[in-house]
Design a protein around this nucleic acid. Structure first.
Lengths: 341, 341
DNA sequence: TATTAACACGAAACCGTTTTCGTAGTTTTT
DNA sequence: AAAAACTACGAAAACGGTTTCGTGTTAATA
């Protein structure tokens, strides 16, 4: 079991000083040709790699970024994560990921674990509980310390930082308009408790699309489903409201509702059509295929990672403050067979 | 922008030495009551938290574990990850995750990035390319350095380390036997190139189940689908072979095949039944629901994390070598409507 | 009262780097 | 030939902790 070789080992072996070795390996002009070659050859031979931890301690930055998301077994978040990881890795950064599990406490604990030197900055989407409690002191704690933070998707106006969001309202407006254009009038909305900023935004798009098209909003057509998977309400909801289309704020609700409708023998999309948020595996492989809103998670992740890393590296070299930005990713509608084209 | 406070700051402010502060905060018996209380109060007031990096450098372990998986937008891997993260977090460890994207090179690069002090050990599933090339030198590199490694699911006999695997052969045997018991005789197998150990094992279970039940294996009933999503072959495969059941080594293949069969108007499960590996969202929300093999990813992840952390912490306190173990997780069959009960 | 033990704390080494600064020895300049 | 300027390298501080060991004070023992 070969132990890792250090600068000190090389220095001792080659009878030069540690500083000489360090400089030689960095190709410093201070060091003579022969010494450089000797050191570099030796280092290569013994496969020397600098110890990341020591470098981090010295340089005061770790090349790690912390990601905190509410859930990992979730299509959208995994695609965002993939985008983050891709961008980060190609820029020499590693990603430490923590799952808050929609819990405020876990979110706080995870942030505290990472905020003590482990990472150069955070990328996160707020947990459900955090949005519900409306308590962001842990975020402020972190930004006050000068640790860069990028929020994505589940964001808040309470915190001044970089953000990446989707044009939720707009894309919902488009989707609902599309349904109306295809002749639908009694369009149901399946949504979650509106402490989620995204639910609120999507509902706003829904309402505006209806009124813009001269249809008054029937509150009975808006079904708020609880946090857990309590979805028995969908059946009666469809039956009692003469519904001819359903827009759902997530894939699961949409697929579920479509399954229930099909079970009742209602024809999709002629009698009832469906659109759901998140263009994931379920939408793709449902039968009929589910028309859905592609959130371009990979793109959101890459943008978030770029914003964060740009800020981290800017802060290293200059003292000028970069203003906070909010980038908006444009969603798109992926048409499949659950809607009338 | 308050900077983080250090031991040195506290020492200066309280006019004691750094070592006294350090000991006081650790409640060392060496330090007097009054001094301890003074230091602890001050530390609490200014929210002192030790710098992780400095502690890591000193202690030579980081409380980080590295996870390398081939894909993140993938139900099974995310559940394993969730298990790892849960166990690790509750034991004070953070998880750095890298995605190899089924690429040998990325796997190597990721391992090298992390193997230089960033982590105390690895948990990984081999990339497709690695299994194809059969080149595990990067793993050996790491184990030779004494860095603990746990392989899960996609493993290899070439490397001596802890492993967590599924009883692939056995559960496939059970599933196929179940199909036979329900009257099926022409059972198709949808599989991938057999450089994946899991594909090989599952195929072995398939073959054995048939012969054990007195059915000879018809090689035409085994369809090997390529790495990408080239699945046009499924339609003709069903048509030409008088197939009455299909077992697929993953969820996507199964769902796809079921969709194609339904498109042809073949009745599921009466005329053709389906079982797929991975009990994910697709299986749950397909219509009819897909009978599937639950791999208990959370459990695999927790076991892997426990094996790794146990080994890391054992190595800290004693020099005795723990023998390598292979834990086998028992899959189970989740029955839904795509099979005859 | 002299000796020993217990107590409370500080100095310093150490983890593995990076980086500033000082200085022999050599070369160039005048 | 003396002064100035390079060249090539080493010593040492620093990053922020942990830990060993030494020591001055006080309390207990003989």
């Amino acid at each position: 079991m070969r132990r890792k070789i250090t600068l000190k080992d090389i220095a001792r072996e080659l009878e030069v000083s540690i500083s000489t070795v360090s400089k030689a390996l960095k190709n410093s002009a201070e060091i003579g040709r022969d010494t450089k070659e000797k050191v570099q050859a030796f280092a290569k031979l013994y496969n020397y790699k600098p110890n990341n931890i020591a470098v981090s301690l010295k340089n005061k930055h770790t090349k790690n970024i912390g990601v905190i998301i509410p859930d990992i077994v979730h299509y959208f978040f995994t695609t965002v994560f993939r985008g983050i990881e891709k961008y980060a890795n190609s820029h020499g950064y590693n990603v430490i990921i923590c799952v808050s599990d929609e819990s405020f406490d876990k979110e706080v604990i995870n942030m505290e674990m990472l905020a003590n030197g482990s990472i150069d900055g955070f990328i996160m989407a707020l947990s459900g509980e955090t949005q519900l409690k409306n308590d962001f002191s842990h975020l402020r704690e972190v930004t006050d310390q000068g640790i860069p933070l990028v929020l994505f998707d589940r964001v808040t106006d309470e915190i001044q930082c970089d953000k990446v969001i989707l044009n939720d309202t707009e894309i919902t407006h488009q989707a609902i308009t599309k349904m109306i254009k295809s002749g639908k009038r009694r369009i149901g909305l399946l949504t979650t408790e509106n402490f989620f900023n995204v639910s609120t935004d999507r509902e706003a798009g829904y309402r505006k699309a209806l009124t813009d098209n001269g249809i008054s909003v029937d509150e009975n057509l808006i079904l708020t489903l609880p946090f857990n998977e309590e979805i028995d309400a969908i059946g009666p909801f469809i039956d009692n409201n003469d519904i001819d289309a359903i827009f759902a704020v997530n894939e699961i609700f949409a697929i579920h509702a479509m399954g229930i409708a099909q079970g009742k023998g209602i024809k999709v999309p002629e009698e009832i059509s469906f659109i759901g948020f998140t263009d994931g595996w379920l939408s793709r492989y449902a039968s009929p295929g589910l028309t859905s809103i592609a959130q371009h998670g990979d793109q959101m992740g890459e943008i978030a990672a770029k914003m964060l890393i740009d800020r981290v590296e800017e802060e290293l070299k200059s003292e000028i403050e970069i203003p906070f930005r909010t980038e908006i990713v444009k969603a798109s509608i992926v048409e499949r067979e659950s809607t009338i084209n």
